[in-house]
Simulated assay, not measured.
Amino acid sequence: MADLSAFPITQRWPALHPDRLQLYSMNTPNGVKASIMLEETGLPYEPHFVDIGKDETWGPEYLSLNPNGKIPAILDPDGPDGQPLALFESGAILIYLADKTGQLIPTDAAGRYQTIQWVMWQMGGLGPMFGQLGFFHKFAGRQYEDKRPLQRYVAESRHLLGVLDARLEGRDWVMDDYTIADISMLGWVRNLIGFYEAREVVEFDTLKNVPAWLERGLARPAVQRGLEIPKRPLNSR
């Protein structure tokens, strides 16, 4: 059985199954990338609910694994060369799990790098811009009298959706097949029109291809499961 005692994070979130990959997350658009990927690949794992609303990522145990204090993060007891590997950043986790399992990333070099480019596009654009739109459209930012920030992020979100819509022309998925590129984006697009309530302001229903892509993705059983993992403990509600 793997010994994970050297990792302080296991003191705060003990591993009941230390031989399995440990997931520290919450079902946010970034968090569900890891849980969806794990469900898609079938890799055994143990999820731990990390409540960002209670600032649990800023405790010393979590920061020992991810000094940036964000979710998700993983601890793989069977990492490269059989040694435990701690990893953060959702894009890096997707690529690592794809390589570890040999799933959901093309095996040819060109396809691999093109897939990674779309993951990086999501990490650098789609997620941050949608997140800012959510702040200024639904949360505290909506009270600002100056609406230029909101207008900026609405415009940029529309642009990014347009880029994705064009990419999906004549195809079901971002690449020829379903990959980590799709997994990186599904939660964010779902969140934009759902939790952020921005469907109308980004003119989502005028898009030709993105709505059907989102519907296809959300229909996948592994995606449906992953969107609900980790389960929120009853005492955290």
Score class of each variant (00 low, 15 high):
140 A>H: 14
83 Q>F: 04
136 F>I: 10
147 K>Q: 15
48 H>K: 06
137 H>K: 12
200 E>P: 01
79 G>H: 08
112 R>T: 12
83 Q>E: 15
116 I>T: 05
233 P>H: 07
190 R>H: 12
159 H>D: 09
195 F>R: 15
6 A>Q: 15
61 E>L: 09
26 M>D: 07
12 R>D: 10
115 T>Q: 07
178 Y>W: 08
110 A>C: 00
85 L>E: 13
205 D>G: 04
3 D>F: 09
119 V>P: 00
171 R>L: 08
16 L>G: 11
137 H>V: 11
235 N>Y: 03
208 K>D: 13
53 G>L: 12
84 P>L: 06
93 I>Q: 03
166 A>F: 03
23 L>A: 12
114 Q>V: 01
180 I>H: 03
183 I>P: 02
19 D>W: 04
149 P>R: 14
138 K>I: 07
231 K>G: 09
99 D>P: 00
182 D>L: 04
142 R>M: 15
112 R>F: 03
93 I>R: 01
124 G>W: 12
180 I>P: 00
208 K>V: 14
48 H>P: 01
137 H>A: 13
187 G>M: 02
60 P>A: 15
25 S>W: 01
182 D>I: 10
194 G>T: 03
178 Y>I: 10
43 L>E: 14
22 Q>N: 08
6 A>M: 11
57 T>H: 09
146 D>W: 11
111 G>W: 06
105 I>F: 01
21 L>H: 05
18 P>A: 08
69 G>C: 10
190 R>K: 11
119 V>H: 08
15 A>L: 09
108 D>H: 13
157 S>C: 13
